[in-house]
Amino acid sequence: MRQPYYDSILLIERLHRHFLEVLKIELDRLGMQDINNVQSLILYNIGDDELTVGELTARGYYLGSNVSYNVKKMHENGYLTQERSTHDRRSVRVRLSDKGLKLRDRISELFSRQVDALDKSGLSAEELTRANETMRTLERFWTSSLSYGAYASSGPL
Results as ranks from 00 to 15, higher is better:
residue 22 V to H: 05
residue 18 H to T: 04
residue 140 R to F: 10
residue 51 L to M: 12
residue 122 G to W: 11
residue 30 L to C: 02
residue 100 G to N: 05
residue 154 S to A: 13
residue 80 L to T: 01
residue 8 S to Y: 08
residue 139 E to A: 10
residue 3 Q to C: 03
residue 11 L to E: 11
residue 42 I to F: 08
residue 132 N to A: 12
residue 55 E to G: 09
residue 116 D to F: 00
residue 30 L to M: 12
residue 152 A to M: 08
residue 140 R to C: 03
residue 78 G to K: 07
residue 47 G to R: 15
residue 26 E to R: 11
residue 21 E to C: 06
residue 97 S to D: 06
residue 135 M to R: 12
residue 149 G to T: 04
residue 131 A to R: 11
residue 91 S to Q: 11
residue 49 D to N: 13
residue 24 K to E: 15
residue 43 L to Y: 03
residue 123 L to F: 04
residue 57 T to E: 14
residue 17 R to W: 10
residue 82 Q to E: 09
residue 80 L to V: 01
residue 63 L to F: 09
residue 107 I to V: 10
residue 89 R to F: 04
residue 53 V to R: 11
residue 67 V to W: 07
residue 84 R to P: 00
residue 143 T to I: 11
residue 41 L to P: 00
residue 18 H to P: 02
residue 27 L to W: 03
residue 137 T to S: 08
residue 111 F to S: 12
residue 154 S to M: 14
residue 153 S to T: 05
residue 146 L to G: 02
residue 50 E to P: 00
residue 108 S to A: 13
residue 151 Y to M: 04
residue 5 Y to C: 05
residue 75 H to W: 06
residue 50 E to L: 06
residue 87 H to L: 11
residue 8 S to K: 14
residue 127 E to H: 02
residue 30 L to Q: 07
residue 22 V to G: 01
residue 107 I to L: 15
residue 141 F to D: 08
residue 2 R to E: 10
residue 9 I to H: 07
residue 156 P to K: 15
residue 109 E to W: 07
residue 118 L to D: 01
residue 62 Y to Q: 13
residue 149 G to D: 05
residue 31 G to K: 14
residue 113 R to P: 00
residue 50 E to D: 06
residue 16 H to C: 02
residue 68 S to Y: 12
residue 7 D to W: 06
residue 5 Y to T: 09
residue 62 Y to T: 02
residue 46 I to N: 07
residue 7 D to T: 01
